[in-house]
Simulated assay, not measured.
Amino acid sequence: MPLRDLPRAPLALLATCVFFAICTEMLPVGLLPQIAAGLDISASTAGILVSSYAVIVAIMSVPIAAVAERWPRRRVLAVLLTTYAVSNLIFAAAPDDAVAMVARVIGGVAHAGFFAVAIAAAVSLVDPASSGRAIAVVLTGNAIALVFGVPLGTVLGTALGWRWAFVVIAVALSGLAVAVLRVLPPRDPPRTNARIPVMTGIRRPAVIVMSVVITLLALGHFTLYTYVSPLLLHDGITHPDVGAVLFGYGCGGVVGLVAAGWAVSRRPGLALVADIVLMCLSLVLAAVIGSSGGIIAVVALWGVAFGAFPTLTQTVMLRAAGDATDAASSLVNATTNLGIAGGALVGSRLLGVVAVPALGWIGAILVAASFLVYLVGVRRVNL
């Protein structure tokens, strides 16, 4: 199905939902000093509000998907978007870090279910051959949120106060919950075969192998990316210019997303292999480059690699899962967030022993391990 023939309104709506979901998850990173000051806590304690969110998503993605599969996806998405909105309002009104943590846990639960259901909903709207393109369209919301949404939210939170930034997101999510009920089909499209339960789908060998691949990829990436600002400062980038370099990373991510959208309808497995190699190369270069001009180029290249990551891993996982689409989407969500939390933990433990650039070598080793696991999967379980 050509891009122009895809169902534009539903996919654009889902992409917008993804945009605000990512803003909910990542905006605290941009407003961490203000949040810490507002709640009268240290920056490290405020950082737990970010990592705990990822842990909740990793733990809850599969169980929530298993429960949610009993209801139409439109209704589930509306409930999850409303839950997102409530979590943002509680966070905005939080008088202390305990209430803020409750808000982030609620948001993490919503996030755990949202991506599994949203991706499965997008795939259900198109024929199987067009599923990769549909996923790429929906995940543009992810790239745009990282490139524009989080920086703009940071500017808004800095100008008006961090609490107002989360109020704005909550209002937008409430409107999207209503829009989902109006735009998406009232019933899931009929399937040519039985819908495979989530708990059955996650036990398929190809799905297990891809889960390991995604976990290792995310671990490798976030072992260094969590500490990308210290890396840039180490290589000679000044504090005021860090944001501009990360904007270049985001622009690279858009390029990677577009390239992945083109590749998934042709050779998704080969494209994933190429992306793994590119990510590994980027991490090695980040470890050895050591200059301000060089690290700017490397970070942009790294952005291309990670920008392609969501679309390619989702598509290959869905292909591995066959008709177990809900299981596949929930596991991609769980394993990616396991990598986010695990990468931050690995990096924090190693930073007391090694310099920041050395984390690039650790990340590259983990990514290389994912490459080997994928090759085994191709040979043994027909990935």
Rank of each mutant, 00 (worst) to 15 (best):
L231W: 01
V167N: 04
A194N: 02
V207R: 03
W164H: 13
R203P: 00
R191I: 04
D241Y: 04
L232C: 11
V183T: 13
R195H: 07
F247L: 15
G175V: 01
L233A: 14
D188W: 01
H239Q: 14
G201K: 08
V178G: 03
I169F: 02
L181Y: 07
P151Y: 10
L176T: 00
T238M: 07
A194D: 15
Y225G: 03
G153V: 12
M199T: 14
V168H: 00
P205A: 04
F166D: 04
V228N: 04
L176H: 00
T215S: 14
V228D: 09
A206L: 08
G243W: 06
T238G: 14
F247T: 15
G201R: 05
T158D: 13
V212L: 15
L246Y: 05
I169W: 00
V155P: 00
V242D: 09
L156A: 14
V178T: 13
G149V: 09
T200S: 13
L246S: 09
P186E: 13
H234M: 00
G157F: 11
G153R: 08
H234V: 04
T154Q: 08
H221R: 06
L181A: 01
D241H: 11
Y227G: 08
G201N: 07
L216K: 02
T215M: 15
M199L: 15
V150G: 03
V242A: 10
D188Q: 08
N193R: 14
V245A: 12
L216E: 07
L219A: 06
Y227I: 11
